[in-house]
Amino acid sequence: MTTSLTGGKPDASTRNRPAASGGMDPRTRKRLGVIALNTAGVLVFLFATFPVYWMVSTAFKTNDQIFTTDFIPIPTEITFDHLDRVLTEGVAGNSIWVYMRNSAIVALGTVLIGAVFALLAATAIARFRFRGRTSFLITLLIVQMIPAEALLIPLFLNVRRLGLYDQLLGLIVINVGLTLPFGIWMLRTFVAAVPKSLEEAAWIDGASRFTTFRKVLFPLVAPGLVATSIFSFITAWNELIFALILMSDSSGYTMPVALQFFFGQRGTDWGAIMAGSTMMTIPVVVFFLLVQRRMVSGLVAGAVKG
């Protein structure tokens, strides 16, 4: 029934109206509007996902299909050669597993230390009023404006002096520093969101401060802690510049550093580098999709609200 009336002007008319009726045949217009919107949605989807798809598909294409001036949207032949090569032969003298492991150690180490520190500090800020609190908050804010790239030189020298050069621990320490201010900033909104009355009820029932924290506050803040931790994990996992200068022995490289070594030596082995990139990307994508909602609200709330 909807197709009979009013043919023209899908675009101009649909864009102007949010939902319901407008002029001639509301149903037709509405349907055309929905089609236009969905088309735009699909285009956005393709723009966003195509490069990712291209990375993954290149990783499984044969070299014949990679090094061609033709467009081969879907590989007609799937090969695991590239994946096999990066896992066994690897790059810069080690299998890619070594770099994956290093990245995982750095990222997890950062998260474990960072989560504890952030939770303590966030509780202090959100639950207590004390002298110096405002100054601390302002420091937290300003410190986030200092580009990490600027601290590269002094931190490099300090790490050397402390004997942490070429050690994953050094990278962990640096990454805790890079992620903590934002971690605290984000987590405090989660702590503040837990109603105080719950803790007060626990006190009245005779629970100690520590018990209250462990049994009441902690479980309620846990989701926020997860979101904050994942944020730190991703930051540490992706970090390139410090890993580049603090690790000299190739067995200590993290993934971002190792990927650089695919370039250059006798041309670029695109199949291998795409296999490596895909392996590096997968954990992050999984985490992103897991906490996507909370992360956005955390980022924005952390930045907007006090």
């Binding site: 990375m55 795409m274 992050v284």
Partner: peptide
């Protein structure tokens, strides 16, 4: 979900992908 997967790509891998494209 689609745009999230673009956002999730690590910066180094972003560089690699676009260098390839």
């Amino acid at each position: 979900v689609g745009i999230m997967s673009a956002w999730a790509v690590p910066p180094v891998a972003q560089g690699v992908i676009w260098r390839w494209l």
